[in-house]
Every structure is written in structure tokens, then in C-alpha cells.
Design a protein around this nucleic acid. Structure first.
Lengths: 224, 224
DNA sequence: ACCTGAACACCGTTCAAGT
DNA sequence: ACCTGAACACCGTTCAAGT
């Protein structure tokens, strides 16, 4: 497929072919373009070259605004963190607030699992919106009577569960089909069959709910 | 650094420079060579070219034994699954068996986090040793009186927590240092400070223990 | 059946040269 | 200050040719 024909007059100041969203060559514009690219071509399509093409510049131009592709991923992660719903902290009971936060967090990142290795080890100082999410959640835990020295540990544990569950959402439906090996693993096969039989919701949602409710109950007991 | 000088006579049948482990060009040999490479150079050093060099063959020769690099990662994952300790199921109380399994699982994969995106969505039919692990765990849950239709969901939930926690192990020590933004997130900063003050164990281990015990308690209540 | 060597279609990143 | 164009040092993978 040939490259799209350039706009009639390609001024060096204003670029792009005149489509809905305005794209400016700064960190916000790069983030917007990256999200656009991911939603149309997936993370495999997110290359520095494709990003530059979306923005109408040469690949090397990107390096005036980000220092690496990893830097782009950090911008994306922080953008997504701002979309996680923490609004129930302070307005609803702690249990319900944690529930909404965790489901929202999982749903946002299940569409962006390639960012999980990034966020899981990213210093919060590099991600202000992520930090703002932590602040809201921490305040919610404290106001609910949580002992201060356990708050971070509890958040880290819930986050670990959320990240793992985000991957699980993307698993194929037949992930537990043992195929020709089925008769060698009778207990497993029987349990998988029973799950399929008695389940109405998505298996990944049932597992997430089961684990999350256990964490909420267990952690809730720590409150003063 | 120059490439290592080739062995005196490079026969097409026997290769390698005469080091401890014997490397044969089949799936087991590829797995062994990959593990060797990872432990010396990390996952960045695990390239098809480096793997071939370790085995003394041309990169293209690898494709007679695996169909892709992802295939190599699957072999690695399955090899590691066999190292996870499930021996306590059947010999110790359910709680203790789950505890040992989960800690072992986390410890094994915390050194191999690049495999987590693979295992999380890998059909079990392609990973016999992973399947064997599931069989042992499922049998342990069933024998402990777990309702059969909830066993897979519980295992999936614990696994999600384990995978997320494996990433957390690799996080830098200063991940929660808000730096110049600290005064904008007072609750978070206070909680981080309190954690650092009152904590003796590794923070990642405290969080893992806290979450795991909540899951064990919560799931234990489901048993008949 | 399995290996080699060359080639292909990409990557992310750098940097001198321009404006 | 910021962009272009060319180049670099890689990737994983394919495939005709050999044995």
C-alpha cells in the first residue's frame, strides 16, 4: 500500500491532512497520536516511525520531545492512570470505593497490558497523574481508619492483583483446554468442565470478583 | 570485545568449546542454552543470534527446532513451571500448601518477568509441565473440600496476584519516592514514610504476605 | 533431516546539516 | 529551538543451496 499523498501544501509549521483531532508536536500530541495508533493497529503498530508518520514529521524529530520509546510508554501510562476511577473514595463506603477503583483500574489496563511491565517498576516521581491516583486512594484508606503503616502494602497488593488480572482478561477462551493431555490431568479437567457448566459471567470476571472480595474482606478487618 | 575464538576443529556434528554443560541442538538444549544466556546477559541478551552462537550453529538452524522466538519463550516458561513447588499439596494442610506454592511461584517468575505476558495467555495444551502444576494444585483444592466449580476461579485469582507480585519484586527501592512532588501528595508521602519507618522485611514481601494471607483466609472459608 | 549463508523487512536511535 | 535525511547497529525470519 502506498503512503498517503501529502496534503496540498505541506507547511513546516502546520502539518497533518485535516482530520478531526488536532495533533501538535509536544508530549500531549505524542500521547494522543500514540493512543490513536494503538486503537487502530495495536501495540505492534506503535513504532517510532509510525508515530512520526501520524504526526507528519520525521522519526528523528520525536527525539526532541521524548528521550526514547520507553518514555512514550511512560507518557501513555500516566495518561491512562488519570482515567482510573477513584471518585468513590470519600463519597462511598471504603469497600465500595476499593471495588470501583480496582475494577476500573483492571478495565483500563486490560486494554494496555504492554504498559504493565512499565508501570509496575516506574518511580512515581516520573508519573504525576499516577501519583495523584495513589494520593486519592491513600487518603481513602486513611479516612476509613486504616493503620497508616499498612496502607502502602495493601495498595501494592491490590495493584499486583489488578495487573495480573488485566493480563487474564486478554487470555483466549480455550486457555484451559488440555486437548490430548486431558486424560492425564483428571482433576484439572473436571474442575474446568464444572466451571464451564455453572458459569454465566465471563470466567475472568468471576475470578477477579472472587479474589477482589477476599482482599477487601481481609484488608477491611485491619481497619481501626 | 571480540567473538570467542572457535574451537580448534569445528566438526559439523559436535560443537561448542568444551565447557561444563553439554548442549545438543534440540528443544531441551535450546532451553538450557537460553537459561544460560539469560542468567549471564539477562533477557535483553536473549536473541536468536546469541542463542545460536551459544549452541555453535547459524541462527537459521534454530528454526528447524522451534518455529519462532515466542516458541523459545514458551519452552522456557514450561521449564520454569516444573520448578514451582507443589509438593505440599497432599502432605500439608491446605493453607500451608497454598502458601508454599504461591511463594515459590512468585520467586521463580520474579526472575523471569518477561515470560509473564506469555504464560498469562498461553493455552495449557502447549505447556505440559505447567498443566501438571495445575493438576497438582487442583487436586489439592479438591481434597481440601473446595467446591469443584470454584477451584479454577480461585487458582486464576491467586495466579493473577502472583504474576503482579512477581513484577513488584523487580521494582526499584525508590519507586515510591515522590521527589519534588511530595508536598502535593501529603497522605501518600506520610504513608510511604511510615512504611519505611516500621518495616523490617522487604516491602515487596510484606505486601505479598498481606495479600496472600487475605486470599487464603477468604478462599479457605469457601471449603465444605 | 538438518545446516549454512545471504538476504529481507524491519527496529530504535544518533547526528551532521539545515532553518 | 527544532526539523530533515542519512546512517548505524541491530532485530526476527525466510529460503535456496548444500550435505
Amino acid at each position: 500500500m502506498p503512503a498517503p499523498t501529502p496534503a496540498p501544501s505541506a507547511s513546516p509549521v502546520r502539518r497533518r491532512a485535516g482530520r478531526p483531532t488536532a495533533a501538535i508536536l509536544d508530549q500531549d500530541g505524542i500521547t494522543t497520536a500514540a493512543l490513536e495508533l494503538i486503537s487502530s493497529k495495536g501495540y505492534d503498530g506503535l513504532t517510532m516511525a509510525a508515530l512520526a508518520r501520524t504526526l507528519g514529521v520525521a522519526p528523528s524529530a520525536l527525539y526532541n520531545h521524548v528521550s526514547s520509546k520507553d518514555d512514550v510508554l511512560v507518557l501513555l501510562e500516566d495518561h491512562l492512570a488519570a482515567m482510573v476511577d477513584v471518585s468513590a473514595f470519600g463519597s462511598e463506603p471504603w469497600e465500595e470505593a476499593v471495588r470501583k477503583w480496582a475494577w476500573s483500574y483492571r478495565d483500563v489496563f486490560s486494554e494496555h497490558t504492554p504498559l504493565i511491565p512499565i508501570i509496575a517498576v516506574l518511580p512515581v516521581a516520573n508519573a504525576p497523574k499516577t501519583l495523584a491516583m495513589y494520593e486519592a486512594v491513600t487518603a481513602g484508606f486513611r479516612d476509613a481508619g486504616f493503620p497508616e503503616e499498612k496502607i502502602i502494602s495493601a495498595i501494592v497488593a491490590i495493584e499486583a492483583f489488578v495487573f495480573g488480572a488485566a493480563y487474564d482478561v486478554t487470555a483466549p477462551a480455550d486457555i484451559f483446554d488440555a486437548g490430548t493431555l486431558a486424560d492425564q490431568v483428571p482433576n484439572f479437567t473436571a474442575a474446568v468442565d464444572r466451571l464451564a457448566l455453572e458459569q454465566h459471567e465471563r470466567p475472568t470476571d468471576v475470578a477477579f470478583s472472587l479474589g477482589l472480595e477476599a482482599l477487601i474482606t481481609g484488608f477491611g478487618a485491619l481497619r481501626g
